[in-house]
Design a protein around this nucleic acid. Structure first.
Lengths: 189, 189
DNA sequence: TAGAGATATATCGATCCGATATATCTACGC
DNA sequence: GCGTAGATATATCGGATCGATATATCTCTA
């Protein structure tokens, strides 16, 4: 059998404790893992079928009234697959951060506008921090301590990042205030 | 005109200071922005054509011997477009982190195996830190200070993250050592 | 009882990613 | 001079992913 896509493991993890429908999985992902691992309907529904064919989950009809609905439960094989994956060292680490990209190209901007990038980045991170903070009570209710651990990691991370932006802004302002360092033309083309 | 994809701005930024070929752009991206904004050939070459048609860059034949080669230079319109984008607050912030995903589902693992996840995450971050550190001399040579600023942000981030992993590992070990907290069955199904 | 919003599944186009095919160049060993 | 390994250069493909939306049924509320 070909190896599973990482998204497959999100699904296995999501149905590990209780059977869930594709819709439920999507809702939970959007409220939890999406900050470090997202999944769309276009991945979830086909993946559930594949996992079902591979015998790692089993679907059961569970209609709500006349609306068809399938809840998927993990199998012993699926459980084994999930645990084996959890034991492997992590591989994927990716980031797409428009703020850092802008900062990287900031030399194309007049120097006095650069602190604005860092200020915007900082505000962006603080807004994210508030969103995460609003989710904390929900995570605290759960018996499983790990989602809360991860959430608090997210909180700490956004705070660290916001602080870094503040420090870099101060550093740039300080450098601009004191000695106008000898630089060859740029940003003033 | 429809708005440009974020990848288009990477390209505009990359050709902002000097004309470059698609191949050069790819190499530079792989050595710099890829940690927070990647781009593949499959994006770069078609995008260069689109930007050229939109008049934001101009291509010029610059063959090396009998091997055809096109270098692209930014136009006044392209410059304007780039600067206007730099002035907008950042929107995209995405992460795909397999380690956090595993930690999130760690309840499916026997408790004594959880520290191993954090240890592996920490090692992963430290390895990334070393890769970044190896790039520092190159960034220091440049006249443009912002790539170095961003790189040092990456160094600090990987260090913060590695430290967080260490602290969380210690926390879990401490919690396991002292009071076996009353938990309903899980991880032992 | 009409309508808004949640539940549920499915799918589409655009984007993105990794890998590879093709071709030409340079550098090096022999 | 010859072969070849690796860099340069462009192009493209399949698969994964993303965001949005179509369709249908349910529940809740004004």
């Amino acid at each position: 059998m070909e190896s599973l896509s990482p998204t497959a493991y999100v699904i296995l993890g999501m149905v590990h404790k209780e059977p869930r429908s594709g819709y439920e999985i999507k809702s939970i992902v959007d409220n939890t893992t999406r900050f470090f691992w997202a999944a769309s309907y276009g991945q979830i529904y086909p993946e559930l079928k594949r996992l079902s064919e591979a015998g790692l989950v089993v679907g059961a009809d569970a209609p709500t009234g006349g609306r068809r609905r399938t809840v998927y439960e993990i199998t012993a094989d699926g459980e084994e697959e999930l645990v084996a994956w959890l034991r492997q060292p992590p591989v994927t680490f990716e980031m797409r951060e428009e703020g850092l990209l802008k900062l990287f190209f900031a030399d194309a901007l007049p120097r006095e506008e650069v602190p604005g990038i860092l200020r915007a980045m900082r505000e962006h991170r603080l807004a994210a921090n508030e969103k995460l903070r609003a989710m904390e009570p929900m995570a605290q209710e759960k018996d499983d301590p790990f989602p809360l651990l991860v959430l608090r990691g997210g909180l700490e991370f956004t705070e660290w990042f916001a602080d870094w932006c503040e420090r870099m802004e101060a550093q740039i302002l300080a450098a601009a205030a004191k000695p106008p360092p000898p630089r060859k033309g740029a940003a003033d083309v």
